[in-house]
Amino acid sequence: MRIHEYQAKGLFAEAGIPTPESELARTVDEAVEVADDISYPVAIKAQVHVGGRGKAGGIKLVENTEEAREAADDILGMDLKGYHVDRVLVEEAVDFTNELYIGVTMDRGEGKPVAMVSTRGGVNIEEVAEEDPDAIAREHIDPAFGMHDYQARKVVYEAGIDAGLAGDVASILKTLYNLWEDSDASDAEINPLMVTADDDIIAADAVFNVDGDALFRHPDLEEMEETAADDDLEAKAQEYGFEGSNYVRLSGDVGIIGNGAGLVMTTLDLVDYYGGSPANFLDIGGGAKAERVANALDLVFSDENADAVVFNIFGGITRGDEVANGINDALDQFDEIPKPVIVRLAGTNAEEGMEILNEELVQVEKTLEDAVQAAVAAAEEVEA
């Protein structure tokens, strides 16, 4: 379960992590009133479940009442990467001298939680991990004992944090880990963790995702869940019958469609392995007919984040020729194909499906590895 930045910062503040003064607003007048009360400069930040808000125009720094009104009017009601913005966080601006990163997640390869610290805060940490993995210090934690003080200090020093700040950063990291553990969270991040001219440390952003299967133990967190679809894509997914575990929107740029949860998860893992970032999880299920396949493609095409689509089908109950007809039907709806589509078919009637596919509109690959690499490369080309 994803929660909004303002909700995460509330949890952080309760746990003792310093956060800027802020308040939620749902109208332009509310936003201006809060900004005037906090005193300028302030940041006005769209509250939607998507990354890259600043680049997309969803975060603005304002210096006075007039600018606050203009910014709130621009952000409230905007479509931000497919999400409708109906609330903003009005927050005290932080006069910072440095930006750090700290985070806690589960390293499934090691079977342990891992704490991460970097001096490269304020930028996409996934890009840092890919381009310069040594810029992120990591410390695995034994869940039976939790994070020891020496482990927090160790990973902070290994990251190259200034000695004068290391104690405070280590303390915040340990608090973040304890909150992550106590809440059955899946991810907890502060990016950036800002350093002020007075060497104060402040959480300027907050990401906190909770394991949905553990919410029965956390009724306070369960109340934060938004039960209604909070964007047009989720509403469309429900309209098409891709509900619950069939469709999950992610923040990457490679759309993924497959038949079977395990097959889709394997595709997600391969996209990540080959340096890409999944835009969604979409399982069309076994025995999917042409109409359902067409709906799946339309759904992923509607995602502004997805720059390419990989279609991974292994025929069992689902027949390859039915899938191929569905792909052709979906693509026939467009005068111009909006994004590259890469298809891998295997199993029942796969050869028949390959013959049916219009290769002028899709790229066909024989192996899943080749299909994923082609999709990652296509998405990178669009970004470039």
Score class of each variant (00 low, 15 high):
T266M: 15
A185G: 07
I337G: 13
V207W: 00
G54T: 05
E239W: 10
N259R: 06
E127R: 13
Y150S: 09
G316R: 11
A166W: 09
E355K: 14
H148A: 14
V28F: 01
G16R: 02
D298M: 10
E70C: 01
V50P: 00
G109F: 06
R249G: 04
L270S: 06
K45Y: 01
L250E: 12
A229R: 01
K236Y: 06
I136C: 03
S171G: 14
L76K: 09
A163N: 12
V32T: 07
A8G: 11
E63M: 13
L270W: 08
A137M: 10
V117S: 05
G167W: 10
G260F: 03
K154E: 11
D213E: 11
V376L: 07
G58C: 06
D329I: 15
V62N: 00
R2I: 01
V293L: 11
G276L: 05
I172G: 02
N280P: 07
L263Q: 04
F145H: 08
T19S: 06
A137G: 09
I342K: 04
V28T: 14
G164S: 10
A294M: 11
E5P: 13
D29L: 10
G58F: 07
H49Q: 01
T19A: 10
G57I: 00
F12M: 12
V300P: 03
R2D: 03
D37V: 07
A56E: 00
A43F: 10
P18E: 07
Q363S: 13
L24H: 01
R217G: 10
Y274K: 04
D149N: 08
G287F: 12
A261D: 03
A308H: 11
V156W: 03
E5S: 09
G285H: 13
G276M: 05
V300H: 02
T348V: 06
A163W: 05
P18W: 02
Y150H: 08
T266R: 14
I256P: 11
E21L: 14
D335F: 15
Y6N: 05
T97Y: 08
E21W: 04
E365P: 01
R153V: 11
L345M: 09
L368K: 02
Y177K: 06
I172D: 04
A214L: 08
L357I: 01
R26N: 07
M194H: 00
T97M: 04
D272S: 14
I102K: 05
G146M: 09
G52H: 00
N209G: 13
T196V: 04
A185W: 02
V323G: 03
E14L: 09
I44Y: 03
S22W: 11
V309G: 09
A378G: 08
G286R: 06
E383Y: 06
G255A: 14
D283M: 07
I201D: 05
E359P: 08
A375M: 04
I59Q: 00
D220T: 14
D95C: 10
Q238L: 15
E14D: 09
H49C: 00
G160W: 05
D79Y: 08
V207C: 01
Y273H: 15
A204R: 12
M78H: 08
D182W: 07
A375R: 10
V382K: 15
F96P: 00
V114F: 09
E351M: 07
I3N: 01
N178M: 06
E130V: 12
A31W: 04
S22F: 11
S183P: 03
